[in-house]
Simulated scan of single mutants.
Amino acid sequence: MQGLDTTSPSGRLLFSLLSVFSDYERAMIRSRGVAGLDRVCAQKRLGRPPMPADRVETINAMLLAG
């Protein structure tokens, strides 16, 4: 990597441009990720599947029994 002299006007300009482009790229990556998650969530359920109702009832009965 080359050194960047931020004491000169051209160095500060280049540093500012790099900062702007990196902010833009980060925003684009985030928006693509969110769009992908939205697309997948519209098609199917994410995460652990729910427990069967009979197992939930058994757990609740055991909790009530102590």
Rank of each mutant, 00 (worst) to 15 (best):
G11R: 06
G66Y: 01
S8C: 07
D23Q: 11
L37H: 02
M62T: 05
M51D: 08
S8W: 06
S8P: 00
P9N: 07
D5T: 03
D38A: 11
A53W: 04
S31N: 12
V56M: 00
E57H: 09
S22E: 14
G3Y: 12
S22M: 15
R32W: 04
M1I: 10
I59Q: 03
Q2F: 13
G36C: 06
I59R: 01
L64A: 09
P50E: 01
A35F: 07
L46V: 04
R39A: 14
C41E: 15
M1D: 06
G36R: 09
C41V: 13
G47E: 05
Q43S: 13
F21H: 11
D5L: 01
A53G: 00
R12D: 07
R12F: 01
A35Y: 05
Y24I: 15
E25C: 00
S16I: 08
N60G: 11
F21I: 13
L46E: 03
D23Y: 06
L37I: 05
S31V: 05
T6M: 12
T7G: 02
L13C: 13
D38I: 08
A53Y: 04
F15C: 15
R32T: 09
R39G: 14
G47H: 02
A65H: 10
K44L: 14
L17S: 12
Q43G: 08
A53T: 03
M51H: 04
Y24P: 06
S16E: 13
R39Y: 06
Q43T: 09
N60V: 14
A53D: 07
I59F: 02
M62C: 07
M28F: 05
A53M: 07
L4V: 09
G33Q: 10
R26H: 05
G11T: 10
G11D: 06
T7Q: 12
G3V: 15
L14S: 03
L37V: 01
M62D: 08
R26Q: 05
G33T: 05
